[in-house]
Design a protein around this nucleic acid. Sequence first.
DNA 1: GCTGGCACTCCGACCGTGCGAGTGCCAGCA
DNA 2: TGCTGGCACTCGCACGGTCGGAGTGCCAGC
Lengths: 340, 340
Amino acid sequence: MAHDERRLEVLRAIVQDYVSTNDPVGSKALADRHDLGVSPATIRNDMAVLEEQGYITQPHTSAGRVPTDKGYRLFVDRLSAVKPLSVAERRAIERFLDGAVDLHDVLGRTVRLLAQLTRQVAVVQYPTLSRSAVRHLEVVQVAAARLMLVLITDTGRVEQRVVDCPADIDAGAVAELRTLLNSAFSGVKLADAGDKVPDLLETAPQHLRGLVATVSSTLLETLVEPSEDRLVIGGTANLARGSALDFQGTVSPLLEALEEQVVVLRLISEVDAGTVLVRIGEENDHEALTGASLVTVGYGSRDRALGGLGIVGPTRMDYPMNMAAVRAVARYVGQILAES
Amino acid sequence: MAHDERRLEVLRAIVQDYVSTNDPVGSKALADRHDLGVSPATIRNDMAVLEEQGYITQPHTSAGRVPTDKGYRLFVDRLSAVKPLSVAERRAIERFLDGAVDLHDVLGRTVRLLAQLTRQVAVVQYPTLSRSAVRHLEVVQVAAARLMLVLITDTGRVEQRVVDCPADIDAGAVAELRTLLNSAFSGVKLADAGDKVPDLLETAPQHLRGLVATVSSTLLETLVEPSEDRLVIGGTANLARGSALDFQGTVSPLLEALEEQVVVLRLISEVDAGTVLVRIGEENDHEALTGASLVTVGYGSRDRALGGLGIVGPTRMDYPMNMAAVRAVARYVGQILAES
DNA sequence: GCTGGCACTCCGACCGTGCGAGTGCCAGCA
DNA sequence: TGCTGGCACTCGCACGGTCGGAGTGCCAGC
């Protein structure tokens, strides 16, 4: 029906104008700035319907209209075209990420890049440990009865843990332990590491059993727990910058939630590689994120998401642009990590 | 002279009141809230002198007085008594830091602790690489012609670098290389690592020379550079929280500077273990830090500062409390790291 | 079903006023 | 000589009223 068609067109125009101007948009301004082919009066009727359906609202009588969360949702799902990145932006992505020296560096650059590209707060998750596989396990003696375990995963992540042992250990035992651990765990996904422990304990020579048990329990407890996922956050200055108004005056609850990490971590973990996920305002069932939207995507190779990355900003954001940027960056990061 | 004595007392009272109320403080309020033993009129005379000397200023005619940077400086240097932490606060420090699983965790907890204790932005530097010594160097083959070096320092820091080699490498060479590197660098301070390279190259067997040269140059280039110092930042929500007024409306330049890290890193590196350093407003010759003060101290054992930590806040801050908190936390972190 | 016209609403900018806090100065006093 | 109370003056800010403009809803006409 041509009716509904135009009404959606009106909604799209409202979203676009409101995002770029930050002013509630009225019927006359719409008619001026867009070729809708009808008069302001007709637009007013459409707007009344859209308001009744809950897609837009007016801050107060006789002000313009503003999209609701539901309105943004419709916009993102049906009204927004993918906005391809400019050549300059693609160049910037490559230039920014090339020359990173290690995983920490890659992710640090990624978060800065995303923040700069989108002018929002950027969030990048370290490759999930549980989905990574062991590349190498190093054992270093740091005291007579204390070992440091260093885990190197196939995603380039390096984790360290100190283990206190019940008795002093000699150098030979350390070397044996290293060999044992590596032959047992090399190439094994951390999520499956627990299954290997009984086998390991059985094959271990008698005099090492106790040590192996201590070490493997530390490994499992501190590394396989999902809580061990890490987050890099950047671009918080963008919050303070313009969007003071978007968050009813204060951005500090949002900053707190970001530093807390746990909420964002939960949200960012639910991603597939390749599919950009948008969460708008109230859809994030967390108080501090009311009024904020998340645009997230998984990065990694085609078949396997290593982790998630994305941005956090006001619901009033340029969704098409941000979705494109997030996707492009994730794709490139996936490539970089696959190479190394 | 009793005169100067009282004038300083007035300055101290002004600083204290202004810090706690955030209002310019007038002569009458001073006389009411402090036992200065003189009338408001006399205080007014003292204030006029203090203003002429540049210790205080008035935002506009017929408002109260506000301390200048110079005034805070005098306060910190001569007028503030060390404010001992409460038992509860000491407990909190211990409880917060105990149970950390690795260096990353220790520093993460430290920054959260400091931010919570002081209600300011907290900054913690990773142990400086150049002042650390090599505990172990691990070499892991990640592809036919690509190695990953993992450096473990005596401060518990772990750094990784990927090295591309001109030719394929066999497993035996990797093991040899590992032994060579460790015997050459174990226990050596990274700052002195460069000196060991000629020796190392000489003693290396012919067929490994090229490999050793490639690897050591990567090590030196990427790890000994001072730019490789890292920073953990937390409590940025405290900036947005109350002190919007303290930074003439916007905190975003400060947030940007913090994320940039380089400025703060430079300032935080100039620390001795044990001596709390206070930089007030303009004393930080960096535009974004005008209006901000830094309270920093080195952490580590008695004779060796591993790195710096501290807080960043408005010049209008509770210096005695913050100095005490920073010092106490640094001391405790030093202990924890010495143990591990 | 669209359009122009019209009356109505209401926010926000603008302005003038008055109040209160605070000052500087001065004369008097110990 | 230095402290004190008194006094006139200044100035920012909160308060309240006014006005204009933008935007709306409704209605009659095409």
